[in-house]
């Protein structure tokens, strides 16, 4: 990689007003990650529907490449992704595009629900994108596999569990620290302002150059948001353990638990 592309800063988050102007001058592709039925009832103008379930049915690089090309996403096309699930599903899709080598992908800073509440424009027209070419340049440095975790941790990588606190206490990958996904959002925004996020990281004595691997319960959604929260701070050495705790358990790898406390009984749920 040449120095130039390394210094190229991709925006992690796009705010609603900026996206609206980019939609007006048609300089952006917007992906809506919600279910098809929801999409049909209304979406951000020009958005293309890619339900997360469809992507997860086959998220092999070839298949993802096919999606990108059929949506008219070229190597240089800016892409903005949104969902209605606090940004977690959108994050998973954004990460997948990044993994096949698409650099310019961002998350909308609010959910569709908020967009609608704000009274911003929506419609129910389905666009017909023109197919285009996209190259395949896999980015293995943003992917963590189960085999990678333990040796990386031994070399100082920090493992971050983005599930809720009680789930984490109940069971987690040995040595992981917990940053519940709820900590990452503020008010109507899917991510806190950078200075807030930076404090959360600094409070944990995590330095900006640390290698960090995020994971969550099953398919890398909550941890996808965790991945982008760290990226938004300019942290480069972040990986997503995309198969997450579900795979870890199925492989019968060791699990750690907070012992001797009935914390679940404190919950009023």
């Amino acid at each position: 990689m040449c120095g130039l592309s390394k210094e190229k800063t991709t925006r992690v988050i796009v705010d609603a007003d900026k996206l609206r102007s980019e939609i007006r001058d048609k300089s952006v592709k917007v992906l809506d990650i919600r279910k098809e039925d929801d999409y049909k009832q209304g979406h951000i103008p020009g958005a293309i529907n890619l339900p997360l379930a469809s992507l997860l049915a086959d998220d092999s690089p070839d298949k993802v490449l096919q999606y990108a090309q059929s949506f008219g996403i070229g190597d240089e096309t800016p892409v903005v992704v949104y969902d209605d699930t606090f940004g977690a599903l959108a994050s998973r899709v954004a990460w997948t595009l990044e993994y096949i080598g698409h650099e310019d992908v961002s998350l909308l800073d609010i959910t569709y629900g908020t967009w609608k509440k704000l009274g911003l424009e929506i419609n129910s027209e389905t666009p017909s994108p023109v197919k285009t070419n996209h190259s395949l340049k896999l980015q293995p440095q943003i992917l963590a596999t189960s085999d990678y975790l333990v040796p990386a941790k031994e070399k100082g990588a920090i493992l971050v569990d983005n599930r809720e606190r009680l789930n984490y206490l109940e069971q987690h990958i040995p040595g992981a620290i917990n940053i519940p996904y709820r900590m990452l959002a503020s008010g109507q925004n899917i991510l806190r302002p950078k200075e807030d996020l930076r404090r959360l990281i600094q409070n944990r004595n995590i330095t900006p150059d640390s290698e960090i691997i995020t994971y969550c319960g099953s398919v890398g959604t909550l941890s996808g948001l965790g991945y982008y929260a760290l990226k938004s701070l300019g942290m480069d050495n972040v990986k997503l353990y995309v198969r997450s705790f579900k795979e870890w358990k199925s492989l019968e790898k060791p699990i750690e638990k907070q012992q001797d406390a009935n914390y679940w009984d404190l919950s009023a749920e």
């Binding site: 606190r165 519940p180 709820r182 900590m183 959002a185 959360l200 409070n203 914390y263 404190l266 009023a268």
Partner: peptide
């Protein structure tokens, strides 16, 4: 954000938030 999604009212009129990471 930082506790377990519930708060607890004590017998001395306070709220308590449990299982907050020391760092938070």
């Amino acid at each position: 954000q930082f506790s377990i999604g519930s708060a607890h009212v004590s017998t001395r009129q306070n709220f308590q938030l449990h299982w907050v990471a020391l760092e938070d």
